[in-house]
């Protein structure tokens, strides 16, 4: 019985945080609600810099949520929402900055590094293959000399 009550409380508590957002920001369709949540997760709070505006309790995050909600409700596209907030707070508020000249290096560095790594690997492999096998073997003359040296250096008892 006790377990049952405990379970009931757990179940009752679980979705409350999920429901909270939809209660405060009623949207008509499930699609809109999902889009709204996605936007909140992708917008960064300028005050608490390592939180998105869905998680942040800062008043400014509240204002940004309200504005995002208003725009989504009025049918704005995701791009329009981003643009409106970037115009006010700067590129900083977007977790995924747009690809342009300033962010080109930011986006391409991982690709460049992987390419350099690939080139190094390919170079090493090719060089190892091209290495003449001959150096590992001896000519007959050398072999004879080596034999001699070994015998001299290690005389039989």
């Amino acid at each position: 019985m006790r377990n049952l009550i405990f379970l009931f409380i757990l179940v009752a508590l679980l979705p409350s945080s999920l429901l909270a957002a939809t209660e405060v920001y009623p949207l008509a369709t499930a699609e809109e609600r999902e889009r709204f949540q996605g936007l909140l997760a992708e917008l960064r709070c300028p005050k608490c810099q390592n939180q998105n505006i869905a998680d942040s309790d800062a008043p400014i995050a509240q204002d940004m949520r309200d504005e995002t909600y208003r725009m989504v409700r009025d049918g704005a596209s995701n791009e329009e929402v981003f643009e409106a907030l970037i115009a006010r707070f700067g590129e900083f508020v977007r977790y995924k900055p747009q690809f342009d000249r300033r962010t080109a290096l930011l986006w391409t560095t991982p690709i460049i590094v992987v390419l350099i790594g690939l080139l190094v690997v390919i170079g090493t492999v090719v060089r190892a293959k091209r290495q003449p096998q001959a150096t590992a073997t001896l000519t007959d003359e050398e072999r004879q000399r080596a034999q001699q040296i070994l015998e001299d250096g290690n005389p039989k008892p």
């Binding site: 300028p46 800062a58 008043p59 400014i60 204002d63 504005e67 006010r88 707070f89």
Partner: peptide, 12 residues
Amino acid sequence: AGRVGFDLGVYG
């Protein structure tokens, strides 16, 4: 309402 502050990008 903080409307103009919001438009200015005031965050604190």
